[in-house]
Write a protein that binds this DNA or RNA. Structure first.
Length: 216
DNA sequence: AGCCAGGCTACCG
DNA sequence: CGGTAGCATGGC
């Protein structure tokens, strides 16, 4: 929580998850406001796997340009057109299939919030994507662990080199829960904390040796 | 030129 | 189980 407070003071609220038509929305936590925005987040989560978000924005804009930024339209796109649209995000063959598979899952939900186990059973959705979808699309208190989180915590001496995703996630959630009470407050803290880690780590944990210049 | 990006699956031992 | 090759484009 010391790290969280320091990052928040320096970088300010990040306002994740950004939407392509509205960008970031710091200090506004009522998003997503409708089913289309929920799906846009899920789509962004899949596209951003091992990819920069700027590349994802290009893909989302490509889809939007052909009026296909919703799950019904994507389902009706020719597969090649979908692959072409998401090409900037890389792994377009895999991701196109992941997206179509996810849409079938999303439709079967009929607006219901999925469980973590259900999400993990969808091909293309691993631990980080499941938690990102739950935290940002469905406002569930699930901390998102990514490569940056592990690098930062390792450099801070708070975790072991071989700590698993599950171990790191539990560590973060336990520490945060000591101080943050209330479900809504927890969700906001998880959302901002992960976003702040990314903002900070882009600057100090992208190049080896990781952590060079980190002032935390 | 080479490394990294807001990972995941399949397959290996 | 843990470990790793393959996936692919774009930016620096």
């Amino acid at each position: 929580m010391q790290i969280y407070k320091a990052l928040l003071a320096i970088y300010k609220p990040q306002g994740w998850w950004p939407f392509i038509d509205g960008g970031y929305h710091p200090r506004e936590y009522e998003f997503p406001k409708n089913e289309n925005q929920i799906f846009e987040i899920c789509l962004g989560v899949i596209l951003t796997q091992n990819t920069t978000f700027t590349s994802v924005v290009k893909s989302l804009n490509n889809l939007n340009a052909v009026n296909s930024l919703d799950y019904k339209a994507i389902k009706n796109m020719p597969l090649d057109a979908l692959k072409s649209a998401i090409k900037p995000s890389g792994y377009f063959n895999q991701k196109a299939n992941y997206i179509l598979t996810f849409i079938e899952f999303f439709e079967r939900l009929e607006g219901r919030t999925p469980t973590r186990e259900e999400l993990l059973a969808v091909k293309g959705i691993g631990s980080e994507s499941a938690d990102s979808i739950l935290l940002y699309a469905y406002k569930q208190p699930e901390f998102v662990v990514d490569a940056y989180t592990k690098r930062l915590l390792l450099h801070a001496g708070l975790i072991d080199e071989k700590a698993s995703y599950h171990t790191i996630k539990n560590f973060m959630e336990d520490e945060i829960k000591k101080e943050v009470k209330g479900r809504d407050e927890l969700v906001i803290c998880y959302q901002e904390f992960h976003a702040l880690i990314v903002a900070h780590a882009k600057l100090f944990y992208s190049k080896k040796p990781y952590g060079t210049g980190c002032f935390l």
